[in-house]
Write a protein that binds this DNA or RNA. Structure first.
Length: 422
RNA sequence: GGAGAAAUGGCAGAGUGGUCGAUUGCGGCAGUCUUGAAAACUGUUGAAGGUAACACUUCCGGGGGUUCGAAUCCCUCUUUCUCCGCCA
């Protein structure tokens, strides 16, 4: 959520920058007008309440003095004030509701380095690494390989749950576990504190990181207890710091965590959902940082470089995209996507998204830090996938297929305990 | 799931109807003293809205109510603790 102060004091800039995100910029002027109205009404309510307080204290004194006439007068005056307060308060509530309703619909303002553009095709490729795999024409897509080696059973998942909930078996299951451990060990070595959060969260948490109300339909909602299955570990991990005032010297906070992730993916279809390309449940290791505002873009680059290191070690060809305004997420100010090339499908698959949210999340979370005895200031939050498993598995299987089985990259072998899937 | 107790500032812990945003201790910060540190002493120390700055308003787990007036009384929800039941 954008800060009212920012909109009030930088109206033109906000319009310019939000235009790049194709946001409803007309909301900005409506918000500014509502806010002015709100403050005026708030002031009126406050001074009336101040009057009421004075009267109450006077009432006590009059009663001690047995001043019956005075008591009657105060009661009458107080009643008059209460009526005014009630009227103004309901106006104030209505104004705040309208203000909030508009405010939560405005996405974060993109950083000025974010390229113009509306569609994924307009994202800027800023970095590429690795050779394109040189596979024979007979190379198989991962769903065929998964069946051939008994790694993943998509049909069985249909039976147990529904489409998009595969069952991993044998070396397929072991590979999952190996990747999770590999990612967690690397993140821990890079200074991230490992946490194991709940995978069901309440509404406040969903709101704090921006999934609610914007993406309500993308989450599984457990209605009996009004809880949501997390779409990413970002939600519980970042919400650890909801309503927290950190000391400046505690920054940066670096957390990582493995969780399953659940996404309804309503409206997806076709080749995008084939095999492991898009699932309703998948595994992911997430990295999260809470940063000083002056250092958050430095941290974003550091996180991008960290994820790139993982992909290099997995020997996967990848490219890094700087997302254009139209393709960025609601809450992000700047996002890098990392895509690996999956050799048999011959397509790029997004495996990581690394974003700086600046104060967009922390404003909702009330996540602040304090230098010395200064007033608390909103911190910046960042996160990135490091990494999401399914598409990594897809690319590993496809790119490393040989006549004699599927080769496991050297970095993973200590974790899998085998060199080849056979 | 049943019965009982509790929820106050970073922490501990007072406060049961009136000027209480809240005694006190610890912790934090600043100062005195000291070559420096410790100890001691002095002062200061919650958040939000609002203002040029004050003023002012709100917040004592959440919500609602009683009252001229609520941290204090009532209702309700949530959470924690103790006991019982069930259980990976």
């Amino acid at each position: 959520m954008l800060q009212l102060n920012y909109l009030r004091e930088n109206r033109d800039e906000a319009v310019r920058r939000l235009t790049k995100k194709y946001a409803q910029v007309e909301f900005i002027d409506q918000i500014i007008a509502l806010d002015a109205d709100r403050r005026k009404t708030q002031n009126q309510v406050d001074s009336l309440k101040g009057e009421a307080g004075k009267l109450s204290r006077q009432y006590g004194e009059f009663r001690k003095a047995n001043n019956e006439a005075g008591l009657a007068q105060i009661t009458a005056e107080k009643k008059n004030i209460d009526e005014q307060v009630e009227t103004l308060s309901s106006q104030l509530d209505a104004l705040e509701e309208q203000l909030q309703a508009l405010l939560v619909q405005l996405p974060n303002v993109p950083n000025d380095r974010v390229p113009e553009g509306k569609t994924p095709e307009e994202n800027a490729v800023v970095f590429s690494h690795g050779e394109m795999p040189n596979l024979p024409e007979t190379a198989k897509p991962h769903w065929d390989l998964a069946a051939q080696y008994g790694l993943i059973d998509f049909e069985l998942g249909n039976k147990l749950t529904g489409s998009g909930f595969p069952v991993y078996r044998g070396q397929g299951a072991k590979l999952q576990r190996a990747l999770i451990n590999f990612f967690l060990d690397r993140a821990t070595a890079a200074g991230y504190l490992e946490v194991q959060p709940p995978i069901l969260v309440n509404k406040d948490s969903g709101f704090g990181t921006g999934q609610l109300p914007d993406k309500e339909g993308q989450m599984y909602h457990v209605t009996v207890d009004d809880l949501y299955l997390i779409p990413t570990a970002e939600v519980p991990i970042t919400n650890i710091y909801r309503d927290v005032i950190l000391k400046a010297e505690e920054l940066p906070i670096k957390n990582c965590g493995y969780t399953p992730c659940f996404r309804r993916e309503a409206g997806s279809y076709g080749k995008d959902v084939r095999g492991l390309n898009r699932l309703h449940q998948f595994d992911k290791v997430e990295i999260v940082q809470v940063q000083h505002p002056d250092k958050s873009y430095e941290a974003l680059e550091e996180m991008r470089e960290y994820v790139a290191g993982l992909l290099r070690d997995l020997e996967l060809p990848f490219r890094t995209l700087l997302l254009c305004g139209g393709d960025m997420s609601f809450a992000s100010a700047m996002t890098y996507d990392m895509e690996v090339f999956s050799g048999a499908q011959k397509r790029w698959l997004e495996v990581s998204s690394v974003s700086n949210f600046e104060t967009f999340q922390s404003n909702r979370l009330k996540l602040r830090y304090r230098s010395g005895s200064d007033k608390p200031v909103l911190a910046h939050t960042l996160n990135g996938s490091a990494l999401a498993l399914p598409r990594i598995v897809a690319a590993l299987l496809e790119n490393n297929q040989t006549e004699n089985g599927i080769r496991i990259p050297a970095a993973l072998r200590p974790y899998t305990g085998f060199d080849f899937i056979k």
